[in-house]
Design a protein around this nucleic acid. Structure first.
Lengths: 132, 132
DNA sequence: CTACTACCTGAAGTGCGCTTTAGGTCAAGC
DNA sequence: GCTTGACCTAAAGCGCACTTCAGGTAGTAG
């Protein structure tokens, strides 16, 4: 089954990689780690991803990119699996994560300032050197 | 030799850790990796760090915190060792790094926006749920 | 029929930045 | 003289997030 139809509702692994920017092997890894629990299969056992899967993987990437660990992601997913009554807990988890990211952001910004100082220093030092 | 004098010009490893927030083992590791080449020793072979070492380690931390690899840091250090004529190259290296950090910063910020959307969603969903 | 490609699995491997371990030395205090 | 604690070294180990490998299947094209 070669699915090249852009209107297809189910994405093959290759198309999923195309759609999300996430490597096929990483997608399988996420599945193994229970971060992606609802992926369907076709009659020959091949994965077929839904548009919901696409959205979810995008969320996973945002959380990973901001440094959430696989372990924490698993916790978050498991809460999701357990139904709507876990929403307060999930909110809590996100709020905590958000705070950590905000803090790290400030640290990066202040590191960037020091880098800018050094850049400024080299810049003027080089200008000085080429002047006489 | 137990150096507890706050006016001492040379810091022991423990004091260096205190001053920079960098683990003793990590400092030794940096030295092994040639990121810290001028550390002095006392008569019994123990390290004594200068105030310049403190400043340099702070620079190293800023660069590490913003994701520069040990390998790149080594390149940067080696240029420094080679004298003032390498300043343009060092500037180039920092400018390149700066650009990468800036880009990553934008990605984190946009990931944070998505997280905020989810937080907003849970927030209003939970309020709705408690409203019969 | 054969070849090819896309997919499948469990398990092992990789890369990076530390961190720990094992086995020492040295100077000071009791 | 003995212990203690801070330090030393080379080498091995660790944690994390993937990534690769070895060996297999299913469907399509020539």
């Amino acid at each position: 089954m070669t699915n090249t139809n852009p209107l297809a509702e189910w994405l093959t692994p290759a198309q999923m990689t195309e759609a999300t920017g996430v490597n096929i092997d990483t997608l399988r890894y996420y599945e193994r780690e229970n971060l992606l629990q609802s992926v369907k299969r076709n009659s020959s056992g091949h994965r077929r991803y839904s548009s919901n899967d696409v959205l979810w993987v995008q969320v996973l990437r945002c959380l990973r990119q901001t440094g959430m660990t696989i372990e924490q992601l698993r916790t978050y997913c498991n809460l999701g699996e357990q139904g709507d009554h876990t929403e307060p807990e999930r909110l809590q988890l996100l709020l905590q994560h958000r705070e950590k990211v905000e803090q790290e952001l400030q640290e990066i910004i202040s590191a960037l300032k020091m880098i800018d100082h050094k850049i400024e220093f080299y810049d003027s030092s080089i200008k000085q050197g080429s002047k006489p």
